[in-house]
Simulated assay, not measured.
Amino acid sequence: MGFAPVIVDAMSLFEFSACQDGWRKANGAEEEAEPPSWEEHLAMVRKVKGGAG
């Protein structure tokens, strides 16, 4: 991210995390996908099994 070690040492965990999130967004990192709900999960399993289950 380009910070000098002394700057990172002076940051709180919250500040560093906010910088990291901003850096990731500015550099094209993809957002994490939401996990499927239990119902969506079961529907995908049934589809793979061919409707059984």
Rank of each mutant, 00 (worst) to 15 (best):
A26R: 04
W38K: 14
E30N: 08
E32N: 10
D9C: 11
G22K: 03
D9T: 14
G50K: 11
K25S: 15
R46N: 14
G22L: 08
E40N: 02
G50Y: 00
E30D: 06
G51N: 01
M1V: 05
R46G: 15
G53D: 02
E39A: 06
D9V: 08
G50S: 12
A43W: 01
K47P: 03
A4K: 15
G28A: 05
K47D: 10
E31Y: 09
G50P: 13
P36A: 03
N27G: 08
W38G: 13
F14T: 15
R46E: 14
P5K: 01
I7W: 06
L42H: 05
E31Q: 13
S12L: 09
S17Q: 09
A26Q: 06
W38Q: 15
A52K: 10
H41A: 11
K47R: 15
P5G: 05
V45D: 02
P36I: 03
M11L: 11
E15A: 04
A29S: 13
K49A: 09
G2F: 09
W38V: 14
E31M: 10
P36R: 04
G51H: 02
V6F: 10
P35N: 00
E40Y: 06
L13Q: 13
R24F: 15
G2S: 12
A52Y: 05
Q20V: 05
F3P: 05
E34R: 07
G53F: 00
M11R: 06
A10Y: 11
E30S: 07
A26P: 10
F14P: 00
W23R: 05
V6T: 08
F3R: 13
C19G: 02
E30Q: 11
M44Y: 01
L13F: 13
G53R: 02
S17F: 04
